Computed example of a mutant assay.
Amino acid sequence: MTGDQESTAEQTQSGGRSRRKLWWPAALAAVVALGLGVPALVSSGTPASGSSSSAPSTDSAEAGFARDMATHHQQAIDMSFIVRDRTQDQAVRTLAFDIINTQANQRGMLMGFLDQWGLTQASAAKPMAWMGHTYEAHDGSLMPGMATNADLDRLRTLSGRDAEVFYLQLMLAHHRGGMDMAQAYVDAAKNDVEKRLAQTMVNGQQAEIDLISSMLTERGAKPTP
């Protein structure tokens, strides 16, 4: 092999290692999150698989929060994947990557709770009924802060700075709605493990709200579309 060939091979291997370093921890975190249900529930004293009447009921705040926040998180993940394909701005792409991985991790934990309690991932209850909240769902926006289908369609048509700004505006509203719901569960929680997860969401999303607000200011944009 010539010197040039050896250099090319080393660069290829280095690039492969870099990609693995970027994606492997995130993939591992998602897998670990899915498996946290058993030890987490055991440590909190809550029986697994709905084997006892002390497990949360399907209409409890525990189950309602898990279902609703999983739905709320999924849209944030979807929006973040969209914008990663619409801009090359490193700051926005890094934020989107962080949201994808953090919220996929948390969503896996929420689904794990429901599985261990022997509860379905969906119910006939209206979103946020567990917290006594009423919200007029419309065009795919099921809970406060969620974007509409029209919003998502528009995001898919934008690129560059326009995509960055619209994504940041949508995500700011999304985080505010999600943080309010997480705080409502913290205030009503009966499961210590799920309460700690919800508090983590409150803290993390407040930090990202501050970051997103500053990113909008840097781009000369306002918080709302």
Rank of each mutant, 00 (worst) to 15 (best):
Leu172Pro: 02
Leu152Gln: 10
Ser7Thr: 09
Met79Tyr: 03
Val92Ile: 08
Ala163Gly: 05
Ser214His: 04
Ile100His: 03
Lys21Ile: 03
Thr157Lys: 15
Asp139Phe: 05
Thr157Leu: 14
Leu22Gln: 09
Phe113Gly: 13
Glu218Lys: 08
Ala9Val: 06
Glu62Lys: 10
Pro56Thr: 00
Asn105Ser: 15
Gly15Val: 02
Ala173Ile: 01
Glu218Ser: 09
Ser14Tyr: 07
Ile212Trp: 01
Ala129Phe: 11
Ser44His: 06
Ala48Leu: 15
Gly132His: 03
Met111His: 15
Ser49Val: 09
Ala63Arg: 05
Val193Arg: 11
Asn149Trp: 01
Thr217Asn: 05
Thr224Asn: 12
Phe113Cys: 10
Arg93Ser: 11
His133Lys: 14
Leu158Lys: 04
Gln103Pro: 09
Gln75Ser: 02
Ala173Cys: 05
Met201Leu: 15
Leu152Ser: 07
Gly35Tyr: 12
Ala163Glu: 04
Asp153Cys: 00
Ser80Gly: 05
Pro223His: 04
Gly220Cys: 01
Gly145Asn: 01
Asn149Tyr: 02
Glu208Tyr: 03
Met128Ile: 04
Val83Glu: 07
Leu197Val: 14
Thr200Asp: 12
Leu110Cys: 10
Ala147Glu: 01
Leu152Met: 12
Ser54Glu: 11
Asp85Gly: 10
Met128Asp: 12
Thr102Arg: 11
Met1Leu: 06
Met69Gln: 13
Phe97Gly: 08
Leu41His: 15
Ala48His: 04
Leu110Ile: 06
Gly64Gln: 08
Ser51Ile: 00
Gly15Ser: 08
Ala221Arg: 04
Ser159Phe: 03
Glu62Arg: 07
Glu218Phe: 00
Arg196Ala: 14
Arg219Gly: 05
Thr200Trp: 05
Thr87Asn: 07
Asp210Leu: 04
Leu95Arg: 04
Ala40Ile: 06
Gln121Pro: 03
Thr134Gln: 08
Thr217Arg: 07
Gly178Tyr: 03
Val165Trp: 02
Met201Glu: 14
Thr8Gln: 11
Leu114Ile: 13
Thr148Leu: 03
Asp210Asn: 11
Thr134Trp: 00
Pro56His: 10
Ala104Leu: 12
Ser53Gly: 02
Ala76Asn: 04
Thr58Pro: 09
Leu28Phe: 15
Asp59Tyr: 05
Ala9Glu: 09
Asp139Gln: 07
Gly37Gln: 09
Met181Trp: 07
Ser57Asp: 12
Val92Glu: 01
Asp210Cys: 01
Ile77Met: 12
Ile209Ala: 03
Leu28Arg: 15
Thr224Pro: 01
Leu41Asn: 15
Ser213Trp: 05
Ala40Glu: 13
Gly50Leu: 09
Gly108Pro: 09
Lys222Trp: 01
Leu158Glu: 07
Leu28Asp: 13
Ala63Val: 05
Ala184Trp: 11
Gln5Gly: 00
Gln169Trp: 01
Tyr185Ala: 06
Asp115Thr: 15
Gln5Ile: 07
Asp98Cys: 00
Ala61Ser: 15
Thr2Gly: 13
Lys190Ala: 13
Leu41Lys: 11
Thr148Gly: 01
Thr120Asn: 15
Trp24Thr: 12
Pro25Gly: 06
Ala76Asp: 06
Leu142Thr: 02
Leu22Glu: 11
Ser123Arg: 11
Gln90Met: 05
Ala182Gly: 10
Leu152Cys: 02
Gly37Lys: 10
